[in-house]
Write a protein that binds this DNA or RNA. Sequence first.
DNA 1: AAAAAACACGCAAAAAACTGCAATTTTGTT
DNA 2: AACAAAATTGCAGTTTTTTGCGTGTTTTTT
Lengths: 249, 249
Amino acid sequence: MLKEERHQLILEEVTRHNKVRSAELCRMLKVSEDTVRRDLKELADQGIVRKVHGGAVANSLIPQEYREHTIDHIGQKRAIAEKALSLVQDGQVIIIDGGTTNFELVRLFPESLQATVFTNSIPIAGELCSHHGIELFLFGGKVLKNARVAVGMDVLHFLSELYADICFIGTRSLHAGLGISTTRREEAQVKRKLAEVSAQVVALVTSDKIGTLQPFRVVELEQVHTIVTELPPGDPMLKPFLDRGVEVL
Amino acid sequence: MLKEERHQLILEEVTRHNKVRSAELCRMLKVSEDTVRRDLKELADQGIVRKVHGGAVANSLIPQEYREHTIDHIGQKRAIAEKALSLVQDGQVIIIDGGTTNFELVRLFPESLQATVFTNSIPIAGELCSHHGIELFLFGGKVLKNARVAVGMDVLHFLSELYADICFIGTRSLHAGLGISTTRREEAQVKRKLAEVSAQVVALVTSDKIGTLQPFRVVELEQVHTIVTELPPGDPMLKPFLDRGVEVL
DNA sequence: AAAAAACACGCAAAAAACTGCAATTTTGTT
DNA sequence: AACAAAATTGCAGTTTTTTGCGTGTTTTTT
């Protein structure tokens, strides 16, 4: 195995878990501890990781608290949110699902916007509390703590009595053939219902999620009216969606 | 576990609760007390925390005064929350109403606490999302943006199917003759229901609210089992409550 | 004042890191 | 192709770091 390959893998591991143990790497890469140590030293000299006794940690020694703010692909997400902003209008009833991209969207809501928002996301609700023009409703239920959203029968029940003009659906995976899918059944149920009661369904999604698949189907592509990505609408990656009649921003 | 990891976790804990007990860390990190002590010493030497007997406290870069002003009477509220902490136990079903004093209470929840929490408060839900031991349920409904709580029929409906061991009720006004009252009818409705379905009703309240009155009645004093203030239980201000058989911490 | 909890110091075992060195592979040049 | 220089890798021995434990001291609580 090439040294560069090892460095690549180490980097992957360290960005993924924020730490690495030398012993683990040693097993993983099938090289001696010395080699691992030397690799780590090189990466440390480049300032990419910080070497500690027993392994290395990601060089963002910014405490956990800030990690919430260091959202992946933040630039992309903000660009998407800006495009999506053109879809919301005064007087609408808007459903906003969880997810960091959607969070960026509500942060961009102008102070002048007058609308009614329903959400199952705790951070989004918190953010909108300080927005004067928004009338805010929260879906209650069991909370998925990692996603910070409510799920369960109560949400479904609440939704069954609702009609919305537009729904921004959080999107983990988007596939031209198979539509939107996600990692948890409860989440999928809720998302499906969100889409069902909305006149327009919008998916804000970074391009790295396009073409991927998760175990639980949310909705078919036919039920998605608009997708917004950071790519220009003409990008070949988006061709399949345009062909199927989806609006692409 | 890497030493750096421990340091990270300790830091998280200390920024979260503003303090940390060595014994707690010891359980949490599965290392000996000596190791914890050494960790704390290192962090203290770096000026990140301040070591005190029994643990460490945050060495806040933000001057104390600033924080004092962000929440009124923060010192009092924290003192109250600390007293109230003795009321919560593993395995309980806990309802927590909104309010800054209640927020301080959940911030003090030890990492080891295992319980089921129901809340209508968005900030409290957000805080508890990063608490491993808590199973969290959120009451949905219309959001009162200034209080950041959900109210309305949906909350009442949710509550009608629930029994809780203990309820911490947010208290704007507490009067020995007339019980708890508040400024909005919708809030009062919800609070009354919260109290109704709970075996023990606790009011965390700063002394400046004692004897005041608001337009909407929440519950009579007979329905309040425990009140917690920053005053010593023997304070004459609390005499009327003791006389009426309310437990006072 | 007594008991309990927290602390500090030193020690020893284990793990990890460093050092120098030799074997092997890669690279560059004639 | 041939050969030398450079880089890479693993090994053995030594040093450093980490960690838990025992012992005794200090601090806190009752």
